[in-house]
């Protein structure tokens, strides 16, 4: 098995071609090779959710995926998601409700929250808690995060209804 492998992928809409160690995970690739440090590493074994981001439109844990596996994929990090404007309402709600303290879980939490909102699910507290249950936050106690996500989900309801 070679120690390095060439990969071509899209990151936040831009094409990236790079040769990477085969053992490098996607989170470390984004952080160390592309300096996209908004993807945070919390446990490196897929439990804490801090490294959550989008690959081909679905949220994944970038610590459990090798960079080599992202070959040919469309990857979106928090930097790209924030710049896209898609989560402006969520970001504002997080700030308004103090749904973050240290902010280390926040990029991953926003991806999980955006996933809920994008699915046009209703502002149901139990359902939001269930949806965020793969994302660990040590600071807030979660209630303010649920408040923020429900507020945005409710705004969404007034715009077009829920699925």
């Amino acid at each position: 098995m070679p120690e390095r492998i060439g990969i071509t992928l899209k990151v936040n809409g831009e094409e990236v071609r790079q040769e990477v160690p085969v053992r490098l995970n996607l989170a470390d690739f984004l952080r160390q090779e592309l300096a996209l440090t908004g993807t945070h590493v919390g446990c490196e074994h897929g439990v804490c959710g801090a490294c959550t981001l989008r690959v081909n439109g679905r949220i994944v844990r970038s610590c459990l995926m090798l960079a080599a596996q992202a070959d040919g994929c469309d990857v979106q990090t928090i930097e790209g998601l924030a710049a896209s404007g898609e989560i402006a309402a969520l970001q504002n709600a997080f700030i308004e409700h103090n749904a973050l303290q240290c902010g280390y879980c926040t990029p991953g939490m926003l991806f999980a929250a955006a996933d809920y909102v994008a699915a046009r699910r209703p502002p149901n507290r139990e359902a939001v808690r269930e949806h965020l249950s793969g994302n660990y936050c040590r600071c807030t106690g979660y209630q303010s995060i649920v408040d923020a996500v429900c507020e945005v989900a409710a705004q969404d309801a007034t715009k077009g209804g829920h699925k």
Partner: peptide, 13 residues
């Protein structure tokens, strides 16, 4: 908070 919601914090790593 804005920089933290944009993934623009500066943690040691």
């Amino acid at each position: 908070l804005s920089r933290l919601t944009q993934g623009r914090g500066t943690f040691v790593d």
